[in-house]
Design a protein around this nucleic acid. Structure first.
Lengths: 241, 241
DNA sequence: CAGTGGTCTAGACCACAAT
DNA sequence: TTGTGGTCTAGACCACTGC
């Protein structure tokens, strides 16, 4: 059989399913289960594919979480994260949370053209590539990849081995302090690798924050890209004229 | 028949299709067509559903655009949009673009609890609710919903009828100038209504910018939520210590 | 009109969690 | 073992585009 297509209906059927679920979610507490996919299929007289399309959007919006083998549940509300020049560790502490960092990889490699330009290096110059997982209260928050000039910060990788704050190492060991930055924020989609580190699904919507930071003298220090789960975090910033 | 499941393959099949398409996209110019869904299905020995899952992610990432009845094409690169206190009109002019605004709706209504609190009103106080479509060089960029106190800005709706800049009306008619703002940025999913105004698809990833602006005296002026297509725009901001 | 993407169905097998 | 979500298939009809 095929879609009923009620002739003058504009909204696709999965959207009606989604609205039905939104009403249900509003009556439930975070953590409560919603009906199983097969039950919704029967209740709403549709196919499982259609139900899953509606569920997928609600998961993407951070309204539901799926747990394979277990069920689908109402999600916790989003968490706000400030955009400031202060370090990750200080930011978390300021809001009363315990920040930790796991070093995933610290290597030296040849800079691609884009990275070389951002760091003011010749194409092919060596850079540190540092990949870290940021956790708040033990749950993964962001996956960060930093690039810094290898010539300017010799031995940096070794100094970071114990999960020290990058900004602290830069200040204490190299006397460098980034004071301004240009940030770009965009949406993206989680790859399997990112999804695994952040405990979410391939294809989940992400917020990608790219920071290009500079010293007071205007010298580029770092170029870092941080991937946040878009269903769990939102960014907050202050503007003035 | 069912998925082959090559036993030790971790990545889902649609992800391999996606990678295949990414390589193809890198060899093509924006605007070039990619193979049709049915052709990809045959070429990659899979089902159309699987091909469409891969295409959907690439569309969400802003790498491809679909045109019903026509085909699927390589997308234009994303456009950067600065986060500043200047008005939309000035921002566009500064980057050499022609900004226009369509007034969709301007009504007075009772404020919900959240809006009343943000504007410093008693619950149920009257507010202007102004919905506008922002266009740059004729293409829709953002769908904006502004809330302002009706008591403080009498007759505002009438003054905006000709598409004047809201900030100009506030300054010239009421002597009010917002100088600071708190902004939050998050991801969301387009509803059919938003999708129609922004000429995209229901379910497309969006960037939602909420701005809460204040006068120099710290009085709240406006609370506005702007929906941008996440596949087409990214936000840029400057930070300093 | 033929061909494109858009939606939906019914059903299969898989991986994982709870019992 | 049972039931959950995860992935995939094959095929249907629809809406729209362009010849």
């Amino acid at each position: 059989m095929v879609a009923p297509d009620e002739r003058f209906t504009r909204a696709p059927k999965y959207y009606a399913v989604k609205q039905h679920l939104l009403e249900l979610i509003d009556t439930l507490q975070p953590g409560s289960p919603v009906p199983t996919e097969r039950l919704l299929t029967a209740q709403l007289a549709t196919s499982r594919t259609t139900v899953r399309q509606a569920l997928a959007e609600l998961v993407g919006e951070g309204r539901l979480v799926r747990r394979q083998g277990s069920g689908t549940f109402v999600a916790e509300p989003k968490v706000s994260w400030p955009l400031q020049m202060t370090s990750f560790t200080e930011q978390a502490a300021a809001t009363g949370h315990a920040a930790t960092t796991e070093l995933i990889e610290a290597t030296r490699e040849k800079a691609g053209d884009a990275v070389a330009e951002r760091l003011g290096l010749h194409p092919g110059g060596l850079v540190h590539r540092i990949e870290r997982l940021r956790l708040v209260d033990g749950t993964p928050m962001a996956l960060e990849t930093s690039h810094l000039s290898a010539a300017r910060f010799p031995g940096l990788a070794r100094l970071l081995k114990r999960g020290d704050s990058l900004y602290r190492v830069l200040r204490d060991e190299f006397g460098v302090e980034p004071v301004t930055a240009e940030e770009t924020i965009e949406t993206a989609v989680a790859s399997p690798r990112e999804a695994e580190y952040l405990q979410t699904d391939t294809g989940a919507p992400m917020l990608v924050l790219s920071r290009h930071s500079f010293t007071a003298a205007g010298e580029p220090v770092e170029w870092v890209q941080s991937w946040y789960r878009g269903d769990r975090y939102r960014f907050v910033t202050r503007l003035s004229v």
